[in-house]
Structures are given as structure tokens and as C-alpha cells.
Amino acid sequence: AVALQDHLVRSLSLNDPLNNRKSYVSPKKSTRKTKAVSKIDTGVKKPTPKKTLNTASHEKEYVIESRSKPLTLAQKFGIIDTPNKPLTEEEWARLKDKSNERQDSSLPCPICQEHFGNQQQILLSCSHVFHRTCLESYEKFSGRKTCPMCRKVEYQKRVIYEGSKINRVKCAIKIQSAWRGYVVRKWYANLRRTMPPKNPLLRQKFFQAKLAEITDTLVSSVNTDVDAFLADIDSSVAASRQIMSLADTSYDARLNENEWKKIQVQALRRSTLECPICIAPIEKPRASTSKSKNGNSKQLVILSCSHIFHQVCLEAFEEFSIQATKVCPVCRSHYVKRKLDLAAIAN
């Protein structure tokens, strides 16, 4: 009974109240004299050697050897089994393969539920894997050395880096996918710039963009003064207008009687009923008289463009017009005017 009680006390990490007393020992003062060493500061920093990280040596697996506890009375008498012997490398390899078959390193840590990443892992003798910091915290705050998964007691621990290897593979895959995506997008953009699409609407936009690009290239390559260029255009347009106005007036001045008769016939065929300026009615031609019943009919004027107006209306329009040359109020063409006698035409 005493042996079993001693074993339970030690396995449960319970303190014996009788052995909890500690004798007070006064701290000894050190009598060793230290020599003062003078240092001269030259102001020049010594070059620090660069640290090169060797992955093979940095990720070397090793077994964490815990201090072996002394055997209890129950273990000495054979009542309780003695602790297991340290595992060999072959046994650790089999445990590691068993853990890899379950893909424990690819899954999150069972304690913190986060991926292992580049942190150290602990492989227990029961083939379960945890973060090293998580397992040490669990052992510290639980007060027991039992597996958080299967509750195995007195396990052995080994540091492995399977999660770090998997993390490097994932990072390499992400880098490769990002680079390949960049290359493909660049190739596709170049293809869109060089090959016209088959869709008619997209094809039209493609050639419009090409034309705009060529135009911008030409404009940027030519160094001209825009103001001088626009001034030349204005002067050429003004000269063209002057030449056309002279041509129109010279043509109108050469109209003979036959041409005027044709213009009058064309105007009568149009059957204009009102003056385009004052919107007042125009009297139809009569054989007897050219005056209306009221005796106050307005004098009519016909233009070389075959439009008919009241003489008073046309003179008022010409007076208030701001243009240098005379243009027809209807068709805006240069004209030569002539009085129109509807009675004579009717006869």
C-alpha cells in the first residue's frame, strides 16, 4: 500500500507536505576581486560576419531527452511496469511514416488549430504531432505528461520539420502560379495588341485603337507650332471664301433675260404663297391689275436663286444683316435681285 501511494504521488506530480520544508541558507558574498580592464573606443565598427543559414543543419531532427525519474517502490517491487526504453532510429522512422500516412503535418496543430509553418514540431512516441511551444505549454499548465490526443503517459519526444517542408512546397507553388499568371497575362495582352478579334464590334474597336495609336505617334513625332498651323488654316479658308464669293457675284452679274425668265417660271411653279421674311401673303398674278382690292399691294422682288420676297422686307433684311456679302435668307446663297411684275408675267 505504501509503494502504491508513493507511485501515485509521484505520477500525479503531488508534493509531499513533509518534504516541503526548505532550510534557509544565507547567500555568500563573493570575495573575488575583479580587475578593471580599460577599453579604447576607436570609433571604427568591426565588420560582423554574415550568418548563412544551412537548411540541412538547421532542420536536423533530434530526440528531446527528458530527465529519467527514479523508480518508485512499486516499480522496484514489480507491482507497476517500469518506463519504456528509448526508441531506436528505426522505430522513430516507423512512427514518422505512420504520422505522414495520416497527413498530420498537413493539418493544423490539434492544440492551437494553426498550421505548422516553419515552426518546430514534436513527434511523440504515440505518433501524434504538435507544435513544440504548444506541447510545452500544455505540459506546463496541465502538470501531467500525457498526450493531448490519446492520453498516453510517459511518452518520448522527437523534433521534426515535416510541416516546414510542406510549407516550402506551398510557397513555391504560390510563387510559380503568380509568375505563370503574370507571363500568361502579358502574353495575352500582347496578343490582343497584335491580333484583331473575330467579333465585328471588337474588331472595329481594335482598328480604332490602332488608328488612334498611329495618329498619336505621328503627332508626337512632328514638332510643329499649333497656333501657326491653325492660323494658316484660317487664312486659307478666308481666301477660299473670297474666291467663291467673287465667282458667285460674277456669275449672277452675267444673267441675261432668258435666264431671268427661267428663274421666274421656276419661282411661279413653286407657288410661294407668303413672304419668307414677314410671313405675309403674296398676291397671285392677275391680267387686269397688279394691285389688290385695297390698292396697297407690296412690290415683289425675285432673287437669282428663284426665291420671292417683298421688296421692303428684303431691304430691311439687307440693312440689318451683319454679313459682308448678301446671301438669300432661305438658301444662304449669293444672289442678284430683280423686281418682279406678276401682272406682266400673267399676260
Rank of each mutant, 00 (worst) to 15 (best):
168 R>D: 03
166 I>A: 00
195 M>V: 13
169 V>Q: 14
167 N>E: 06
172 A>V: 01
207 F>I: 09
189 A>V: 08
177 S>E: 14
178 A>P: 00
186 K>F: 14
168 R>K: 11
199 N>F: 03
166 I>K: 00
195 M>S: 06
192 R>Y: 07
192 R>I: 08
171 C>R: 02
177 S>R: 03
201 L>P: 00
170 K>F: 05
175 I>M: 12
207 F>Y: 10
193 R>W: 13
198 K>G: 11
172 A>N: 07
199 N>I: 07
208 Q>W: 08
190 N>V: 05
180 R>G: 06
202 L>N: 09
181 G>P: 02
208 Q>R: 09
189 A>G: 08
202 L>Y: 08
173 I>P: 06
205 K>I: 02
196 P>Q: 07
203 R>Q: 10
208 Q>A: 08
188 Y>N: 09
203 R>A: 03
179 W>D: 15
180 R>Y: 12
206 F>N: 01
173 I>K: 15
175 I>L: 10
180 R>E: 13
206 F>T: 00
181 G>Q: 05
183 V>H: 12
173 I>F: 07
196 P>I: 01
204 Q>K: 01
203 R>T: 05
173 I>T: 10
167 N>M: 03
172 A>D: 07
170 K>N: 11
195 M>D: 05
201 L>E: 15
190 N>S: 13
193 R>A: 15
198 K>F: 14
202 L>Q: 10
208 Q>T: 14
204 Q>G: 04
178 A>D: 15
171 C>M: 13
206 F>L: 01
179 W>E: 15
187 W>N: 10
197 P>S: 00
176 Q>A: 05
171 C>V: 05
176 Q>T: 09
179 W>M: 12
205 K>E: 01
185 R>Q: 13
189 A>D: 13
167 N>C: 02
182 Y>V: 03
184 V>G: 00
191 L>R: 13
191 L>C: 10
186 K>H: 14
189 A>I: 09
173 I>E: 04
181 G>M: 06
208 Q>Y: 06
176 Q>V: 01
182 Y>G: 04
168 R>H: 09
181 G>R: 13
186 K>Q: 15
196 P>W: 03
183 V>P: 03
192 R>G: 04
200 P>L: 04
203 R>H: 07
181 G>T: 13
206 F>H: 04
184 V>L: 09
173 I>R: 13
191 L>V: 11
192 R>F: 07
208 Q>E: 09
202 L>I: 02
206 F>Q: 01
170 K>Y: 06
186 K>A: 15
183 V>I: 11
179 W>L: 14
197 P>Y: 02
170 K>C: 04
187 W>Q: 12
190 N>W: 14
179 W>G: 10
203 R>K: 11
176 Q>G: 03
186 K>P: 04
171 C>F: 02
177 S>K: 05
189 A>R: 10
199 N>Q: 05
198 K>N: 15
201 L>W: 09
207 F>C: 04
190 N>I: 05
207 F>H: 05
186 K>Y: 15
